[in-house]
Design a protein around this nucleic acid. Structure first.
Length: 745
DNA sequence: CCCCCAATTATTTTT
DNA sequence: TAATTGGGGG
């Protein structure tokens, strides 16, 4: 029975939501469909536990995937509870693991000021290592080694637990061993290591484990479908026997399987936590009935779902428009037309989202937007803390904090150039290797023994003094002053300023931006009392916090966020967002579903379908699916068939848009028709095709290979060769004069 | 140390 | 097509 005092905590929730929020204390698995108010439920559940059950926020651990989601949750909680929750354990898996390790660095076997490696740092470290070991990166590229290591860590396996199957795995494994050793020596922790180390810490230190298990009465996980094995193990360990866990997720929105996410975790949940109660949130507050019907229809083509069907008590809305464009330019123009119309009718540009499967598709869209003078914003791309000049500045700071950080050392020893070349560096590396020490220490001892040439010696000496001096100065400076001094005294600012073009200016601006961004990490209050400068620990402490944040949070470009601009992003990036007017572009076989996914098998196709489901459910009112019959991919014109996903949406919800009358459209690229005096090979080939009532894009039947589509033609007359993509067979080159081809359609 | 050319290669990316 | 990368020459 829900009492009166309860009702205020449940106000505005629907019955299903309220049931979850006020659920008796037990494990909960909440299948929350798109737009079903999942974040709200998560937040309200915590509020309920605090207000109704009398728990302290300190007894609750809430974990999400992204910093953005974590910030949002914390903000909403603070608003609801009216207290600051800075010390509450609410954050990302990586952030919380880091917190655990920082608190218990000794027990975790880490140096006090261990550094976090982001994936670029990890790549750079491995690159050096593989070169040193003369690993054949021609045959086995770096990223294979990197993913071998990360995958094993994400499965909870250290190098010594890996059973290498073949010779290749043996080689990878050897590098895994070396890599682990290097990281330990240098006090470096990569992303997967944060989780694994935290898990091992809890596993191997019973007192700590029991402490945290009894402290956290409730665990709450968002986006549970995206957890990997390691994260699941992490959750199980922290929950222990006594705790309660609430997992919120949606198996239909699992789109990160390729990154190790185990959709199976959802399936195992009720077995691992037998008392768990399953709830479904199916009422959608975002989209029209038509959009939901289309999404439901599409996703039903997937096998093994837990099952869920979105509904709304809102309007049915307009049908979903499908537009078959001639090519990607036409597609972009069409979209721009619609957006302009939307704006004319008083709509905002920021209400429009253009979604695509792969980033390369943004180009044609951007061109058209630019030409129409429509402001737009492209999401994705390089993020602030990943920029080269920023990483250089950070590397100096890292070296100041930790002289053992060889990655930082290598990065800045000659940036900007100070006359330390490969020869000197090789000497340092060799010495470091022989003595089992870091590059910094190797520099010191080579300087001491005088075994460097005069020029190199003075260059190194200068570098060492620079770092020492900056470190010393930082003791008496605030964080932003420290950063300011670093970019100036190291010469980074001058170095980039002298770079030609706009690039250099942009880098200088970024460095200045870094100086001012860093102020957020300074203590809010000025130092009190007669400030003994040597006791300005806040500045140093802030530096550590800042460096960690910079590796754990890539600092999303927060600039121009409030501009009214059309939003461009991949379907992956769009997860969790919503827009009144959505265009899903490039809905073509080979592009979406992506060719690579198709080649990898049925599971991957299902993931593509879920991605499409995610895309459709972003739309609030109006949804367009567009595809092009011809598209330039990797510099060559490719003919495309509309995606099977369009066919999988019940046709009653779709409406084909026909802008122009059906005129016979030129099949040749305009670039070629504009030079009539010169007949290209492709043009001749197409003329030969036309004689036989064939054309590129034509569906044909072949005795042996079955049905296929003509993709390309080259040559002339009977010797014309055709590239045909046969269903289930793949692409074949056939000679027109011999091939028994029947035109279809 | 810098610059240029040829070769290579091409999803998605929370941390 | 276009971006990146590695090698070779100046």
């Amino acid at each position: 029975m829900i009492s009166l005092s309860d009702t205020s905590l449940l106000a505005g929730l629907n019955e299903d939501q309220a049931r979850v929020v006020a659920s008796p204390e037990t494990d909960l698995l909440v299948l929350a469909g798109a737009g079903s108010g999942k974040t709200r439920v998560l937040v309200q559940r915590i509020v309920w536990l605090v207000r109704q059950q009398g728990l302290s926020p300190h007894q609750i651990l809430a974990v999400t995937f992204t910093n953005k989601a974590a910030r949002e949750m914390r903000l909403r909680l603070e608003n609801q509870l009216g207290v600051s929750l800075r010390t509450m354990w609410a954050g990302t898996f990586h952030g919380l693991s880091h917190r655990l390790l920082r608190t218990h660095w000794r027990e975790a076997g880490l140096p006090e000021h261990f550094q976090v490696l982001d994936s670029d740092d990890q790549k750079a470290l491995l690159k050096r290592q593989l070169k040193e070991n003369q690993f054949d990166t021609e045959r086995y590229p770096l990223r294979q080694v990197q993913s071998f290591i990360n995958k094993n860590k994400e499965e909870g396996r250290r190098a010594e637990n890996v059973v290498a199957q073949g010779e290749i795995d043996q080689m990878f494994l050897k590098e895994y061993f070396v890599y682990e050793h290097t990281c330990r020596r240098q006090g470096l922790v990569d992303f997967a290591e944060l989780l694994l180390r935290a898990l091992e810490l809890l596993r191997d230190t019973p007192s700590l484990r029991h402490h945290y298990q009894s402290r956290f009465a409730h665990l709450l996980v968002d986006e549970f479908q995206d957890t990997n094995r390691l994260q699941y193990a992490w959750l199980k360990t922290l929950r222990g026997e006594e705790g309660r866990i609430m997992a919120v997720g949606d198996d239909d929105q699992s789109i990160y399987g390729w990154r190790g996410a185990q959709i199976e975790n959802i399936h195992h949940f009720t077995e691992d936590f037998p008392q768990a109660v399953l709830h479904r949130l199916e009422q959608n507050y975002r989209s029209t009935g038509t959009i939901l019907a289309a999404a439901n229809g599409l996703i039903q083509n997937n096998q093994g779902r837990l099952g869920k069907s979105l509904w709304t008590d809102g309007a049915q809305g307009d049908p979903i428009r499908v537009y078959a464009a001639f090519n990607e330019q036409d597609e972009a123009r069409f979209i721009v037309d619609i957006i302009q119309q939307h704006v004319r009718e008083g709509g905002l540009r920021s209400e429009c989202a253009l979604l695509y499967r792969s980033n390369a598709q943004s180009r044609a869209l951007e061109d058209a937007l630019l030409r129409a003078g429509l402001p737009y914003r492209v999401y994705g791309g390089q993020r602030f803390y990943e920029r080269m000049e920023i990483k250089n500045a950070l590397a100096y700071l890292r070296l100041m904090v930790n002289r053992q950080d060889d990655g930082a050392f290598e990065r800045v020893i000659n940036t900007p150039t100070r006359g330390i070349g490969q020869t000197t560096l090789e000497k340092l590396r060799a010495h470091a290797r022989d003595e089992g020490q870091g590059l910094w220490d190797a520099s010191l001892s080579l300087l001491a023994t005088g075994s460097l040439s005069g020029r190199a010696a003075s260059a190194i000496k200068g570098f060492v003094q620079l770092i020492e001096s900056l470190d010393e100065q930082s003791m008496t400076l605030s964080l932003h002053e420290t950063v300011e001094q670093v970019v100036e005294q190291t010469g980074l600012l001058d170095f980039h300023a002298s770079e030609k073009g706009e690039k250099g200016q942009a880098r200088v601006d970024n460095l200045k931006e870094l100086v001012s961004a860093v102020r957020h990490y300074e203590p809010a209050l000025p130092l009190t009392g007669d400030d003994d400068p040597l006791l300005n620990l806040e500045g140093r402490e802030a530096l550590g916090v800042f460096l960690t944040e910079a590796s754990l949070d890539a600092g999303d470009n927060q600039a121009d966020e409030d501009q009214d601009a059309v939003q461009l992003m991949t379907l992956h990036t769009a997860k969790g967002l919503e827009f009144p007017l959505v265009f899903i572009t490039g809905v073509e076989e080979g592009l979406f579903p992506h060719q690579m996914a198709l080649e990898e098998g049925p599971d991957r196709l299902e993931e593509e379908r879920r991605l499409c489901y995610v895309g459709i459910t972003r739309a609030m009112k109006t949804l367009y699916l567009t595809h092009a019959e011809s598209r330039r991919i990797y510099g060559k014109d490719t003919f495309c068939r509309r995606s099977r996903f369009i066919g999988e949406i019940p046709s009653q919800w779709l409406h084909e848009v026909r802008l122009r009358a059906a005129v016979s459209r030129p099949m040749m690229p305009s670039r070629q028709t504009s030079t009539p005096q010169w007949q290209s090979a492709a043009t001749l080939a197409q003329a030969s095709l036309a004689e036989r009532a064939l054309r590129i894009g034509q569906k044909v039947a072949h005795k042996k290979f079955g049905e296929g589509v003509i993709l390309q033609a080259e040559g002339e007359g009977d010797r014309t060769r055709l590239l045909i993509n046969f269903e289930g067979v793949g692409e074949k080159w056939l000679v027109l004069g011999f091939a028994p081809l029947q035109p279809l359609d």
